[in-house]
């Protein structure tokens, strides 16, 4: 089986609002899966179900299953912090901590209980290299992360994630705060990361979905309208609503 994650009949309610309607979706291992659709269609909500970030919001009810390697992450035996170490997340706006570059990357390791200074340093270096930041920042590791340019901040957030060696990386519109050149860099980085990680990305930008993803899901009003290989969805959508969206007649 090649699916890292399988979402089965997932329903989510915010109070009375039915935000996700019986969504089924696989996320293939070592590939990039994009979620596209107009604002408010539930794609970010769906993404945040995969590492249980929606648990933080009061009044959310979830039923259905999200299987990670065949195990339901919503079952009672799952430790949420452990789950989030395996399924990391990059947010829409870069959100490095108000700490130094080094401490940002080391944070996940310290949280996980690593105390060995030299191992931490090695991992920090490896993670920064993994996010293509090492050459830029190796002499400025004690600089406050909030003073970096936005695209470096976002790649720092990716580095911070790589340090805890997740299996899945969720990206919630990771480039929406970045300019086109910075966006390109992050996209190239994603294509490289795909070789070792399973990636799910939410994006508003359909060109981005077309450029980086192998699989796409088109969502509308909480439903998964169409799901398949990105090339197929973009050239030959089977649902009229998808057709409308990708040709720009909707949203």
């Amino acid at each position: 089986m090649n699916n890292k994650i399988e979402i089965k009949k997932l329903n989510l309610h915010y109070g009375k609002f039915h935000a996700l309607k019986s969504v089924d979706m696989p996320v293939r291992k070592n590939s990039i899966t994009a979620l596209i659709g107009p604002s408010g269609c539930g794609k970010s909500t769906l993404l945040r179900c995969l590492n249980r970030m929606n648990d933080l919001i009061a009044g959310v009810r979830i039923d259905g299953q999200v299987l990670l390697d065949g195990i339901d992450i919503y079952s009672h035996s799952v430790e949420v912090p452990e789950l989030r170490k395996r399924v990391g997340m990059v947010f829409q706006r870069p959100n490095p901590f108000p700490l130094s570059v080094y401490d940002n990357v080391a944070y996940g390791l310290k949280v996980a209980g690593m105390r060995d200074g030299s191992r931490i340093s090695e991992t920090v270096e490896r993670s920064l290299k993994g996010a293509w930041l090492w050459e830029n920042l190796k002499d400025r590791l004690d600089k406050p992360a909030l003073e970096l340019p936005l695209d470096q901040q976002q790649r720092l957030c990716i580095a911070r994630l790589l340090a805890v060696e997740p299996e899945v990386i969720l990206m919630d519109e990771p480039c929406s705060a970045l300019d086109p050149i910075a966006t390109m860099k992050v996209e190239e980085l994603m294509l490289e990361l795909r070789q070792r990680y399973t990636i799910a990305i939410v994006t508003h930008n359909m060109q981005q979905a077309a450029r980086v993803s192998e699989y796409s899901g088109y969502m509308l009003l909480g439903e998964m309208v169409e799901l398949g290989q990105t090339a197929a969805i973009f050239t030959n959508p089977s649902d009229a609503r998808t057709q409308d969206y990708i040709t720009g007649r909707y949203g």
Binding site: M53, G88, Y107, V111, L161
Partner: peptide, 26 residues
Amino acid sequence: PNSYREGSLALGATHWQTTHMVTVPA
């Protein structure tokens, strides 16, 4: 900002770790 808390929790930190390592220092 709530994004600090979210960033920490998303890295697998517990609620208390987030509070004393990120929120209170901030």
